[in-house]
Design a protein around this nucleic acid. Structure first.
Lengths: 189, 189
DNA sequence: GTACACATGTAACCGGTTACATGATTGC
DNA sequence: GCAATCATGTAACCGGTTACATGTGTAC
């Protein structure tokens, strides 16, 4: 499992990457992270201590984050974490992961989590992400549309409607990607 | 926990409800269910034996399904399950659950799973579902749009784009619901 | 001094994932 | 008789959920 003495590779969960992203923005405490999950649009993540503190400990053990000692906080019971060099590397690798069919059919939330943190990357790489995203949603849309067209008579009404809902959703994602690319290219120029 | 001697209420997982829905369509074996998850659009569920068989056992223990004995199958090692009266009741209750904000922000997949099985309900009740769904997506869309409008200058570009993606997604769901209501009402008349 | 917000931790439970194991039936 | 497919089961692991427990600093 190991390569040249490095510890076994550790793959953070979605929650782990979300925490890494927040800590990369600036060092924070577990409690601060909890409040962000409670109060902002990142509410999809649980803010319960039973999820955050063990997740922090895992990231710490695997040296993706580290506790900052001796920082001036009002409360001594507070521990502030920052992302290590290794942690930042693994986070950026995650942001740059290629996008495949399965990602858009089964891991759309993860895709959007990644996009939300892409201020860490140069615009060129955000564009690469969006282009992969656009390509996958476009081809998947086409397949769904073609399937609906050819099976229209064989499918029960509710099934057709359910499929239509899926198509509309992916179409919206695709249109968004196309527009986002335009916006970023204009902004970049 | 108990009421008048009935066993503690058991809440199936998403996978449990998916299995109930398939078995309500017609009695099947675990293996058949696995093949459906592997080969159809229900691929979001794992087809691994480690998930299906324990799920079947849980549903069986809580008497939401039961094994059909002595059915003519080619293989004697196959066990076929059917939904019990109690199981059907609980499944229909689940289909009829009200829809709130949290359902559309955090449980959209569950909403669509429910819709996919609504051939079990009379059209009137499907329409009730769609109307609740339309109302929640509409108000949520409006809030997101209003937020984007007022915060436009304060938000970083990528955050604006991420928010735009969310809005477009919910708008697509909303438009779909409106159209689905029309289609069902026309069809029903 | 006491109530409240700040701040962290952990133990029990549950279910999904992975991997392994087993046996029955069919086709060649 | 042997491979492939059919068919079920289970043990180890992992992480999220819930609930409980604990202690600190501040405001009144």
């Amino acid at each position: 499992m190991d390569k040249r003495g490095t510890t076994t590779t550790f793959e953070p969960t979605q929650l782990g990457y979300a925490i890494l992203g927040l800590l990369l923005d600036e060092p924070r405490s577990g409690y601060t992270i909890r409040k962000i999950f409670q109060q902002t649009a990142m509410g999809e993540f649980s803010s319960s201590p039973g999820s955050i503190y063990p997740a922090l400990k895992r990231l710490d053990v695997h040296q993706l984050i580290e506790e900052i000692k001796g920082v001036a906080t009002t409360r001594k019971s507070t521990s502030i974490y920052r992302v290590t060099k290794q942690g930042k590397g693994q986070f950026l690798d995650w942001l740059r992961l290629p996008i495949n069919r399965r990602d858009i059919t089964h891991a759309m939330k993860s895709m959007m989590l990644r996009f939300g943190f892409m201020s860490q990357l140069p615009v060129e790489e955000v564009l690469v992400f969006l282009q992969m995203f656009e390509r996958e949603t476009r081809t998947y849309c086409q397949e769904l549309e073609s399937f609906l067209k050819h099976q229209a008579d064989a499918l029960p009404l509710l099934s057709k409607l359910a499929l239509d809902n899926g198509i509309r959703g992916y179409r919206a994602h695709r249109t968004w990607a196309t527009r986002a690319i335009q916006v970023l290219e204009t902004d970049h120029a």
